[in-house]
């Protein structure tokens, strides 16, 4: 059982690593609260779907760790500048050699790291090793882009 679950996790990690070659940064999603606070997320796209969002720090023009979005006052940077910064980030992303299991989706959440931060996850379906899209985020992206 133990070796089986480890090998399943390893297969999910391999699938995430193969997917990473085709993952690109999408257009930034700029949110503004009614109080005027700014939050920027950048979706990671894989083959027509968003797989996760990266929280973005517009002051430092770099990603934030997953779970720590920041809200700040001020104007959002040019979308082109964010995309450019995120391209370098995506080029530096690496797959962590460990995964956690998400029971509701029967999938492995494989962390993606940038430098010393985990910035996103790629979910890989257990046994079929398919990439699991983030459907609500994909919807949001499509709505914003069109």
């Amino acid at each position: 059982m133990s070796s089986d679950i480890v090998s399943r996790s390893q297969r999910a990690i391999e699938a995430a690593r193969a997917a990473l070659r085709f993952i690109v940064a999408g257009p930034p999603l700029v949110h503004r609260t009614p109080e005027g606070l700014l939050r920027i997320d950048v979706p990671l796209l894989y083959n027509g779907f968003a797989v996760d969002r990266v929280h973005f720090n517009p002051k430092a023009m770099s990603p934030l760790p997953k779970g720590l979005p920041i809200h700040i006052y001020g104007e959002a940077p040019e979308p082109g500048a964010i995309t450019k910064a995120m391209e370098s980030v995506v080029a530096e992303l690496r797959v962590i050699d460990a995964a956690e299991y998400r029971e509701p989706e029967e999938s492995w959440a494989v962390p993606l790291a940038w430098r010393a931060l985990i910035v996103a996850h790629v979910k890989i379906r257990d046994f079929t090793w398919e990439v699991v899209p983030d459907y609500p985020l994909t919807e949001e992206l499509r709505r914003r882009v069109t």
Partner: peptide, 10 residues
């Protein structure tokens, strides 16, 4: 070296 992308849930 492109390799085949993993499948998406269908």
């Amino acid at each position: 070296q492109l390799g085949a992308p993993p499948r998406v849930l269908v």
